[in-house]
Design a protein around this nucleic acid. Sequence first.
DNA 1: CATTAACATTAAAGCGCTCACATGAATCAG
DNA 2: CTGATTCATGTGAGCGCTTTAATGTTAATG
Lengths: 316, 316
Amino acid sequence: MATLSDVAKKAVVSKMTVSRVINHPDKVSDELRELVYAAMKELNYVPNVAARALVKKRSQVIKLLILEEMDTTEPYYMNLLTGIALELDKHHYSLQLVTRNSHAIGRCDGLIVTGMREEDYSSIISVLNQPVVLFGQNDKGYDFVDVDNRKGIKLATRHLIEQGFESILFFGIDLNEPFMAMREAGYVETMCECGLNPYIQLMKNSSHVSQSNAAAYLKTSRCKTAFVCASDRLAVGVVRAAQDLGLSIPEQVAVTGFDGVFLDRISCPKLTTIRQPIIEMGGECAKMLLQKIQQDGMKLGSCLFPPELIVRGSTV
Amino acid sequence: MATLSDVAKKAVVSKMTVSRVINHPDKVSDELRELVYAAMKELNYVPNVAARALVKKRSQVIKLLILEEMDTTEPYYMNLLTGIALELDKHHYSLQLVTRNSHAIGRCDGLIVTGMREEDYSSIISVLNQPVVLFGQNDKGYDFVDVDNRKGIKLATRHLIEQGFESILFFGIDLNEPFMAMREAGYVETMCECGLNPYIQLMKNSSHVSQSNAAAYLKTSRCKTAFVCASDRLAVGVVRAAQDLGLSIPEQVAVTGFDGVFLDRISCPKLTTIRQPIIEMGGECAKMLLQKIQQDGMKLGSCLFPPELIVRGSTV
DNA sequence: CATTAACATTAAAGCGCTCACATGAATCAG
DNA sequence: CTGATTCATGTGAGCGCTTTAATGTTAATG
């Protein structure tokens, strides 16, 4: 493995110049810079991350702290992880998966936190000395990345209205968190804009729960009904309820989900859903965090991704 | 942050002794060892991974090379990842996610490879200079970790026979890979042992494909039928086919899956499945790999995990 | 009691890199 | 032409750790 010294020798310059070409290319004359680049290429030089980390007093590790039950949200997180890991790799940072219990183990240069709930802010406060980016909206002033939840649900609701539905229910998750507030608001606003009555039901994020709730409603209702669901998981349950009752989808019952990560495609019929670009969002988390680390924890604000309506068999 | 020097000063020994206490505790007298431990505790000493990596010429990175389309197998991998990451963290190794295209980027001390197919062996051969452990059975002599596929399917088949089914089909995946051969063999063996006729159908690992195949079969069949599926995904399709035809589960149609990772629980009724302890298996991959790295690539053989039959509504 | 083997401990070098500082050349005001 | 100023480059120290080789200590041997 070629070292910085080897490159310096080959280019007949000092080690310092090589180091400078890597870290501050603009502070080196064009001539020398090209010389060094050529030598690096010829020797197939790859910087030694450990050596740099040692002198920079960095660990080159960033942690992903997952506060939710991983079991219940699994498919979603795989994409997040992928997005983060891909971006981090570009900068020779590596990702450490930690949970509520293990998050204090080992050093890191910063964290990405996901699944943060109201009650977590007090208990996890110790991590806030370090650079941190939250995955998921928050109203506490921390930098975060999220999808535009309100706009997403607006897209879904409007789509259902365009399909001619007038009885449109919202199935939400019974969590008092900003992302849910936004989704609910998107639904209510759109309904009001169109002069329709909102009807909201909150429940645990489980397909079995939404299935029984939807069944209970559909048994008493006579007209065609649409469900705006706050997650694909809830939507899956609604689809099953409709099928059990022999109601045709999407003619008598239409359903939209939210996430577009996995469940939307294994459902039958496939779900119309609001796709979150999770991989890209994960990448953005990583980018923001690395920038914060470089700028010594400076505040960067938030980043809201535009959601996308994916139309499939559950509505058309 | 306390350093090794600080500890040495506090314990009034040389740096060397402290280092030796960490790396070869048996080569230091009991008295000194305790002294050093006490000093370490008092100063809250944490070794600097980068410094160690620098002198040991290690990167402290291991890569997970995922050769399958991640999209189609997602929930499964999240567990694998978790298992690997958890074990690796204990040893201050970090995990880098790479794909077919990105696997050459950056250094690593070893790899775990998953989704390896027959045709990959030639193209990925360059990674085999380094310590490597495969996740998934192989007959090429590489160290691997897998679940006992044959035994798993045997459990499922026997369970169905015990439930009184005599017409039992096997829905397999059309891949010519060892894990599928094992699953098929487990089915055939058990059927023969019980004097029943095996009937095998291979297809793409898609719930929609298995749904239509199951539907085609069930339309012509008159007696109660059971399906041994090679994946939960296939099983989900079979369940849907039965429901579409108005056949009752598990009285007229019974189904078993394989994996027990995610789909088994969102299906309705929930699936009887063969659970693979993926998290533990991931941990074992990591352990094996770290041992190989330490022992300079020595061959370690394979590790087959016992599968577990989870009985749920799709069969009883 | 001197010699040596066996073991415990230390001093010092160096892993590959970056940084603060030193040096030297070129430019410009006066 | 001198001294100040700028810019490009080099020197050397040191990040925290492990390792080799050297040194000190003890116990066993003749």
